[in-house]
Simulated assay, not measured.
Amino acid sequence: MQLCHTEDKTMAGSADEKRQTLLQRTRVAEQAERYEDMVKCVKELVEMGGKLSDDERNLLSVAYKNVAGSRRSAWRVVTALDQKKAEQGVDESDSGRQAVKWLREKVVTDLKEFCGDVLTLIDKFVLPTAENQEAEAEVFYNKMKGDYYRYLTEISEGDEREDMVTKAKESYEKAYAKATTELAPPHPIRLGLALNWSVFHYEIRNDGKEACRVANDAFNSAISEVDHLKEESYKDSTLIMQQLRDNHTLWMSEQEDQGKN
Rank of each mutant, 00 (worst) to 15 (best):
M1A: 12
M1R: 07
Q2M: 04
L3R: 14
L3V: 14
C4N: 09
H5W: 01
E7K: 15
K9A: 04
T10W: 11
M11S: 13
D16R: 10
K18S: 10
K18V: 13
Q24T: 15
Q24F: 10
Q24A: 15
T26G: 01
R27A: 15
V28Q: 00
E30F: 14
Q31A: 15
E33R: 08
E36L: 11
D37G: 10
D37L: 08
E44M: 10
M48G: 07
G49S: 04
G49V: 04
K51W: 10
K51Y: 09
K51N: 01
D54G: 02
L59G: 08
Y64V: 05
Y64S: 10
K65M: 03
N66K: 10
V67P: 05
V67R: 07
S70N: 13
R71L: 14
R71D: 03
A74I: 04
V78F: 11
D82K: 11
D82F: 11
G89V: 01
S95T: 04
R97G: 03
R97C: 01
Q98C: 12
V100Y: 08
W102G: 04
W102V: 12
W102E: 14
W102N: 07
L103D: 03
E105D: 10
K106C: 00
K106Q: 09
V107D: 06
K112L: 04
E113D: 05
E113Q: 06
F114Q: 01
C115F: 03
D117C: 09
V118N: 01
K124V: 14
F125M: 08
V126E: 00
P128Y: 03
T129S: 01
T129R: 02
T129W: 07
E131V: 15
E131D: 12
E136S: 11
E136M: 04
V139T: 07
Y141H: 06
K143F: 11
Y149Q: 03
Y149H: 06
Y149K: 01
R150L: 12
Y151D: 09
T153L: 05
E154S: 09
S156H: 05
E157P: 07
E157Q: 11
G158T: 00
E160H: 01
T166H: 13
T166Q: 13
E170T: 14
S171W: 10
E173Y: 11
A175S: 09
Y176Q: 11
A177C: 06
A179S: 08
A179P: 07
T180E: 12
L183A: 00
L183R: 08
A184L: 13
P185F: 02
P186S: 08
I189M: 05
R190N: 02
L191D: 07
L191V: 05
G192C: 00
L193S: 04
L193W: 08
N196K: 07
F200S: 05
D207N: 13
D207H: 08
E210F: 00
A211L: 00
C212H: 01
V214E: 00
V214P: 00
A215T: 05
N216G: 05
A218N: 01
A222D: 03
S224F: 03
E225L: 12
V226I: 11
D227M: 09
D227S: 15
E232V: 15
K235P: 00
T238L: 00
L239C: 07
M241Q: 02
Q242E: 02
Q243K: 15
Q243T: 07
D246F: 09
L250I: 08
M252H: 00
E254D: 13
E256N: 14
D257G: 02
Q258K: 14
G259L: 00
K260H: 14
K260E: 13
K260V: 10
